[in-house]
């Protein structure tokens, strides 16, 4: 597949990006046919930068992250190229892949209960990771585990090490999960909606914490969310995903202040924000497409008030709105 989708604008042409994804497509076989859920996604991320993938449920955000981590089951059909820190991820044997998970890339999940084993204490799970990956002895690992909990602002860290996951509040559990993901000092952190299950007052604490750690440790991050405002809070760059494709990418500033794709615009216009009470909202009609039905043209066309005939038949190509802003819409062509 040579027809690459929109690539995220590069900040400098000389440095090699930490992560580059080209033409990623993912399909799950179902009843003898392939269901395409990620379509021709390309991105490039420099060390120390934060990319936010924004999209609604089922748009393919988690599958994109899991393809980078190579966490998808074997039957999944993955096309395209993923180069992370010089490693061709799609070609790497499982044994070498395991060595990258931790020191190069690690992941934080939406529901931390799934990432922790309920029968071991938080401390045991962090020290085990440190001993396994960093070859620390148990004393050093214990010390480091405590430092990590301090780093993620878990109060009374020493005491909390012996707590079981279910004994912690949602916010503390998510912090402990982040500590576990940071244990081996990854160059890239993949965060899949890590704050969605948290309350507003705790969500902002965790977002600020992630942003601070990411800066201090010089770590790059891909952060997945369905909330535009979360993207605005923490991203350098954003990619808006709809029905498996990146439909608009660019700097957070440019995309969120001057959205150019009708879907991004529609999301902005339909959100309540600070609209006067009781006024009718400019809702986007219809609903996201069923991934088992592959539309020949722009996936958003059936819901787009501005669509022209060509939208229904050909996939819109990426158009540069500016040096760091790309939108895939015929109207911009």
């Amino acid at each position: 597949m040579m027809n690459f989708g929109p690539s995220l604008p590069r900040h400098s042409e000389v440095t090699r990006p930490l992560l580059s994804v080209e033409g990623l497509s993912v399909a799950f076989p179902r009843e003898g046919r392939d269901i395409q859920v990620v379509r021709d996604v390309s991105l490039s991320l420099e060390a120390g930068k934060v990319l936010c993938i924004i999209g609604e449920s089922g748009s393919g955000k988690s599958v994109t992250l899991r393809s980078i981590m190579r966490l998808l089951q074997r039957s999944t059909r993955v096309e395209g190229r993923i180069v992370l820190d010089g490693h061709e991820m799609t070609a790497l044997p499982e044994r070498r892949l395991a060595k990258l998970r931790g020191p190069v890339v690690s992941m934080v999940f939406q529901e931390p209960m799934n990432a922790f084993d309920p029968v071991y204490s938080v401390g045991e799970q962090i020290t085990e990771t440190l001993r396994h990956h960093e070859g620390m002895d148990s004393k050093a690992a214990n010390l480091r585990a405590r430092e990590l909990l301090d780093l993620v602002q878990v109060p009374r860290a020493a005491e909390r090490l012996s707590a079981y996951p279910h004994e912690l509040s949602g916010g503390l559990r998510q912090r402990a999960m982040i500590a576990l993901a940071l244990a081996c000092g990854p160059k890239l952190l993949l965060a899949d909606e890590p704050t969605t299950a948290l309350d507003a007052t705790v969500q902002i604490q965790v977002l600020l914490l992630l942003r601070r750690l990411q800066r201090e440790l010089g770590m790059a991050m891909i952060f997945v969310t369905h909330d535009l405002a979360v993207g605005a809070q923490i991203a350098d760059d954003v990619a808006v995903m709809y029905a498996g494709r990146f439909v608009e990418t660019g700097s957070a500033h440019s995309v969120l202040r001057n959205p150019s794709h009708p879907y991004t615009k529609g999301l902005m216009a339909s959100s309540v924000g600070d609209k006067p009470a009781g006024a009718m909202l400019d809702a986007i009609p219809g609903q996201p497409p069923d991934p088992s039905i592959l539309l020949p043209g722009c996936s958003f066309a059936p819901r787009c008030s501005k669509h022209v005939d060509a939208c229904l038949t050909s996939i819109p190509r990426p158009i540069h709105m500016s040096s760091n802003h790309v939108a895939c819409c015929i109207l911009q062509d």
Partner: peptide, 16 residues
């Protein structure tokens, strides 16, 4: 703690 969709109006310290 309400987040804005405007990247120029980020929150820089947690209210609570």
């Amino acid at each position: 703690s309400r987040l804005s969709t405007d990247p120029d109006r980020r929150i820089d310290s947690a209210p609570l």
